[in-house]
Each structure stands twice: as C-alpha cells, then as structure tokens.
C-alpha cells in the first residue's frame, strides 16, 4: 500500500518531527537500559519507556500528521495506545512472576521469600 506524502504547514511538520524524535529517543533509551541494567527485575523497567512514553509520542505525531494533512480529525491512534498500555503490563507481570518463581525455587537470597501467614 503506498500513501502519498501529505502536505503539511511548517508548524505541524515541526511538531510531528519533534514528537517522532522524542518517541524514538525514549524507546532508544529504554533499549539501552534494557541492555545495561544488571538484574532481571531492573531490566523489566527499561522497556516500559518505549511502551508508555515512546508509543505515546509517536502516536501523537501520527495524530497530528494525519489530522492536519487530511483536514479531518484522525484519532484512532488512541485505540492503539489504549490497547498497548493495557496489554503490555500483562506480559510484564507474567515474565516477572516466572522469574520470581524460579528465583524462589533456587532460593536466591536477593528475592523476598513468600510470606505465608497460613499453612499451605
């Protein structure tokens, strides 16, 4: 599918560029953090930069680009943002709980043990 490039006034082009770069930058920083942080639980935090701020800024750029370019309000990007921010935490929690389970099974001292008030 080929989209023709839309004509934008200068202010809109600048705004689109700023938000695109901002989103890409946040995602890049998140990825660098993902690479450099030492433990699994710390690494878990880094990609959320991309899935929150990164996605948000890029979607905002998309909204401005298509709304100004086509002359009518295009906001279905909000749905992408909504679904990304609802679904990614589910994956994060699954990964985190799997790691927690493994660390506890291996009796890793860095991880808090499960406190059981009641006998299992």
């Amino acid at each position: 599918m080929t989209e023709q490039v839309l004509d934008l006034p200068l202010w809109a082009a600048v705004a689109v560029a700023i938000f695109l770069i901002l989103g890409a930058l946040l995602t890049l920083i998140g990825t660098i953090g993902f690479l450099r942080l030492p433990t699994f639980y710390e690494r878990l935090h880094a990609p959320t930069l991309g899935t929150s701020g990164g996605v948000g800024a890029i979607l905002l750029a998309s909204i401005i680009y298509f709304s100004v370019g086509t002359g009518r309000l295009v906001i279905h990007e909000i749905l992408i943002g909504l679904f990304v921010s609802i679904t990614t935490p589910v994956t994060f929690m699954l990964l985190a709980r799997a790691a927690l389970h493994r660390d506890r099974a291996e009796r890793n001292p860095d991880v808090p043990a499960k406190v059981h008030r009641k006998p299992v």
Binding site: T48, T88, P89, F92, M93, A96, V115, K118
Partner: peptide, 19 residues
C-alpha cells in the same frame, strides 16, 4: 496493577489476596 506496571520505574509483581 496496569497503572503501576505501565508507569516506568515501578512494576507490580505479586498480589496476595490472603494478606
């Protein structure tokens, strides 16, 4: 849970409904 996990810097790991 979604709010805390989606916000960078904090992650919701395990909820215990008993405690």
């Amino acid at each position: 849970a979604v709010i805390l996990t989606a916000t960078p810097g904090s992650a919701w790991l395990e909820y215990d409904s008993g405690d």
